[in-house]
Design a protein around this nucleic acid. Structure first.
Lengths: 260, 260
DNA sequence: TGAATAGTGTCTGTGAGACAATATTAT
DNA sequence: ATAATATTGTCTCACAGACACTATTCA
């Protein structure tokens, strides 16, 4: 076998979580933010830009194992939801030469992180705006990262779109595109599965759950309909929580669908 | 950059189509079969086994471009539905050394193939049986290929399963697993999108369309409900077809949903 | 008291499942 | 006539959207 098809093989992992920060309004609930963990690069190429946690895949491991290794290093977590997003293999995506990367998406409950983040890691708030043909993604914390992705329908039957990077600032190569694809995938699954519960703590109120669904789906939900749908999937716990100047709420845990 | 993460990079393409063969019953409709195109290997490793069309990815092309190149070579088709299925990168999957492969799934209308298949290519009928924890896949034509895949729930919330190869006969390395994953993906999309129309000719009867849906979904559908759902997506054409000892049927074409 | 959220009730329309009934052709 | 499929109609039930109403807490 000759060398003509040899590529450097890397992995990148999207670590999404929900951040909860108190509001100005003393009676209101804390506001929730959808966020992603990024790393500040300390060497070339893209020095001082932000990038996804990741690295090269070793000869004796799969990209999944490599992604788990990176995840554990950054968050010290194991046993969480991880899904393969796909491969990113544009010829020119890395200035160092041909580097292809398998991207994974992880969903975590931020409260479960006990250790301090590494010095160059940082959670960014996600502002995601999907229009007909363009997606604007803004990530904000220490830095402001702007990404623009164009969206083109390529198969009407299967509702298949082609996403491609238009601009990106302060972020390595195609990582803005990968993040966008992850959010789209998450949104899609949020509408058809209970994937969102992977972002929740073990115990939560229905109000919190609804907040998280609203952030992920990018739209307001109807209260009673939401409760009706969630009802069979969750179970009340004895304890209650008093969160401010309003009626206290019950805590629930996820139990899955009643029948299947 | 050292050589420690260099992999041979390949692509494999699942080419699915519907085959239509006349029945014993002179009044009945021709029976439809779900089928896949395989290639008989003429060299080691796995000489005389069957495998997916594929090959190595060149330095100046993406895996998608490589897959399109293979697809054109085997079928002389372009401009058809193709979707990335994911990467298969188990360390031991190829005896020649580390070879990773990005798999694509293509759906075609078999009637659109005008050229003769290459000598070592052959369409296999698919018999797919998904049980609770095991999937049995049998492919039949010149040879009989048997594949057994185990299925394990790994995330209840997202309805995420891990599929792994248990046995496979007459087929190269993990290609039986890749085919299985493709069928599962197709089934899932058949329930939520109009992806099935990619397997249909431009003009078809509702009966034919229903037959194809029934093969893909692996279950019988209710006639009137099927027509009700398909109604807004299709449009009648002037011509009719007389297909046997029964009322002639109208021809339809796909137009997509009325409103969106 | 009133702001803010928690939780319940109810009306209505849509859409799927089930099944019945009619239509048309070739043998 | 009869087998086989095409096509239409209709009844019921479940469920989602919409919105109103009650409950409870703290400032």
């Amino acid at each position: 076998m000759d060398n003509s098809s040899k590529c450097n093989y890397a992995t990148d992992i999207l670590i999404y979580a929900i951040d909860s920060r108190t509001n100005d309004n003393c009676r209101g609930l804390p506001q929730k933010y959808f966020s992603i963990l990024l790393i500040k690069r300390d060497k070339e190429p893209f020095k001082n830009s932000w990038c996804l946690p990741g690295g090269f895949v070793k000869q004796d491991e799969t990209s999944f194992e490599a992604a788990m290794r990176v995840l554990k290093k950054e968050t010290n977590l194991t046993n969480i939801y991880v899904e393969q997003l796909g491969i990113f293999d544009e010829v020119q995506r890395d200035p160092r030469g041909r580097v292809i990367s398998t991207a994974y998406m992880a969903l975590i409950d931020k409260n479960s992180i006990k250790d301090k983040l590494s010095e160059n890691a940082c959670w960014f708030d996600i502002d995601f705006d999907e229009k007909d043909k363009v997606i604007n993604l803004n990530l904000e914390n220490e830095d402001k990262i702007k990404v623009q992705v164009s969206k083109k329908l390529i198969n009407k039957e299967a509702n298949q779109y082609l996403y491609s990077l238009k601009n990106s600032e302060n972020i390595m190569s195609d990582h803005g595109l990968i993040i966008t694809r992850g959010i789209i995938e998450l949104r899609k699954k949020a509408e058809t599965t209970d994937i969102v519960f992977n972002l929740m703590p073990k115990e939560f109120t229905i109000g919190e759950l609804k907040q998280v669904y609203e952030i992920i789906l990018g739209k307001k939900l109807i209260n009673s309909a939401f409760r009706r749908v969630m009802g069979p999937k969750i179970q009340m716990i004895e304890e209650q929580v008093k969160t401010g100047g309003h009626r206290p709420s019950n805590l629930f845990k996820y139990i899955g669908k009643e029948k299947e």
